[in-house]
Computed example of a mutant assay.
Amino acid sequence: MKRTIRKAVTGFRTVDGAGVSLVRVLGHDDVEEFDPILMLDSFDSTSPEDYTAGFPMHPHRGIETVSYLYRGKMVHKDTLGNEDCISDGEVQWMNSGSGILHEEQVPAAERLLGVQLWLNLPEEDKMSVPTYRAIRRNEIREIPFEGGFLRLLAGVYGEYQGHRGDHLPLDYYDVHLDENAELVIPTEEDESVMVFTLLGDALVADEPVREKTAVKLTEGDSLSLRGAAGGSQILVMKSRALHEPVAWAGPIVMNSGQELSEAFLELEEGTFIRERPDFNTGR
């Protein structure tokens, strides 16, 4: 059975961090429908003044942040001692787990184009050990097909395997389609599947979808994508819905109001960070 569109959400312009202009596509109102993806922010600018203010040091707990830059740079620093930069075509994957503070600076570039999504952690993994991982261009397989190609950012596509997270499964594809070219992606019936039209309009499940729109699909065993006029760049995300309660305030996502209150109390008391770098071991 082919998947069809269940819900479509078009982003709106807002400002976050220290003054970064971005398009917020998914947020609090979409938690149940797009489970386990909580938030999706899109970056697309040729004006450095839109984003170079960056995101100063801030906390997270209970989620994984997955940032994909098709164009541009992002510099990451955190309380685990990680300092790193990703650039064109690379992915930054951070599990905040039990608690982390991090900052993201965004240097000027010819164009900043990409997305950050928040992937919810299962209740059993909310207090897992925080980790950081960059997925480099040489780790990302580019798979050609007639009329386009697919970049395997994470997970599995057919016989090909990419980076796998330690918690929820996530198959993450960057699909490039020429005008009128079609790609049919096999899916498991019960997978939670969504797409985001990063550049250009597209036909998703045979329906027209405008640029910068997130689409949640119904259950089914396949998803059809077709390029629109001028071609399309579409991000596809497949995971497993958690069906767990979500308590979300600012940068912290837990399963109950009490857990949220405890997290913010720990922030006030200076006990939020459970894991710190051990410089004797280089960690």
Rank of each mutant, 00 (worst) to 15 (best):
Y68E: 05
E83W: 12
M74A: 15
D88I: 05
G89S: 10
A108H: 09
I86D: 02
T65E: 08
I86H: 09
I63Y: 02
P107S: 09
V91C: 06
D78A: 11
K77N: 14
A109T: 15
V91I: 11
K77T: 15
E110G: 12
R111V: 04
H102G: 06
S96F: 02
N95C: 13
N95I: 11
K77A: 15
L101P: 02
G81K: 11
N82I: 09
G99A: 11
H102Y: 13
Q92V: 04
Y70V: 06
T65A: 12
E110N: 13
G81Q: 07
A109V: 10
G89E: 11
E110T: 11
C85H: 01
R71V: 07
H102W: 12
G97F: 00
E90Q: 14
I86F: 08
Y70H: 14
G89R: 14
I63S: 05
Q92E: 14
M74E: 07
E83G: 07
A108I: 04
G81M: 13
Q92I: 04
E103V: 00
V91N: 04
W93R: 10
Y70L: 12
P107T: 03
D78P: 07
P107E: 01
N82T: 15
A108Q: 09
V106Q: 13
G81F: 14
H76E: 00
N82M: 06
G81I: 13
D88V: 04
E103K: 00
I63G: 04
K73G: 04
A109S: 15
Q92H: 13
Q105E: 01
V91L: 08
I63P: 00
E104N: 08
G99V: 02
V91P: 07
I63R: 01
H76K: 05
S67V: 06
I100D: 09
R111Y: 07
T79V: 02
S96D: 03
S98L: 08
N95R: 15
W93K: 07
E83N: 11
E103G: 01
V66D: 13
S87V: 03
K77R: 15
K77S: 15
G89D: 11
H102L: 09
V66W: 07
M74G: 14
E110R: 08
T79I: 01
Y68P: 02
I63H: 02
W93G: 12
K77W: 09
D78N: 07
D88C: 06
V106G: 01
V75G: 05
H76F: 01
R71T: 09
I86P: 03
E110P: 03
S87L: 05
